[in-house]
């Protein structure tokens, strides 16, 4: 029998198309994995942002990756039973974001304050004196900043 751990491992290969270095698992959007009777599997996932245009694509990729393990029936459901927040990004995921030169989201205790939204660490020189240029960026999950130390512009993976 194929185990849940094997599914998890296979899903490490499914990346976020907008940030192709991080897997759907490390992004924290896989919320439930169930292996059922008669060689079936069910994966539940949730989008990072409600309007995320990549979720359908990722849902399809997850379907293919799990099917490839040899299940007869695979169901991939997208729901909000466990709504995503940026604390669900794994430690490895945070590191992958940094390596991608994205400032990782700050860990928070449930809710993030308005003041916290305006600060990020520069992924290039690690300076903390930064200015928020816009809370919106090239994808829904990124904000744009400027580092006051090195002068470079950078993007942050939003904390929500």
């Amino acid at each position: 029998m194929i185990s849940e751990a094997q599914i998890l491992l296979a899903l490490q290969e499914v990346k976020d198309p907008e940030i192709p270095v991080i897997s759907v698992v490390d992004l924290g959007i896989i919320t439930k994995i169930e292996v059922g009777e008669e060689n079936s599997a069910k994966v539940t996932m949730t989008p990072t942002f409600v309007g995320c245009p990549a979720i359908k694509h990722m849902q399809h990729e997850v379907q293919l990756a799990v099917e490839a393990l040899g299940f007869d029936t695979v169901e991939v459901v997208v729901d909000y039973t466990i709504p995503w927040n940026s604390n669900m990004v794994s430690e490895r995921g945070l590191q992958q974001l940094k390596d991608f030169r994205l400032s990782p989201p700050k860990r928070h205790c449930g809710t993030i304050s308005m003041a916290d939204l305006e600060h990020a660490q520069c992924p290039n020189c690690f300076g903390t004196e930064t200015t928020l240029l816009s809370p919106f960026g090239p994808t829904l999950c990124r904000a744009m900043f400027k580092c006051n130390t090195c002068g470079e512009g950078f993007e942050q993976f939003k904390a929500v």
Partner: peptide
């Protein structure tokens, strides 16, 4: 959580 950014 998303609307915070709109308000900001």
């Amino acid at each position: 959580g998303e609307l915070k950014y709109h308000v900001l």
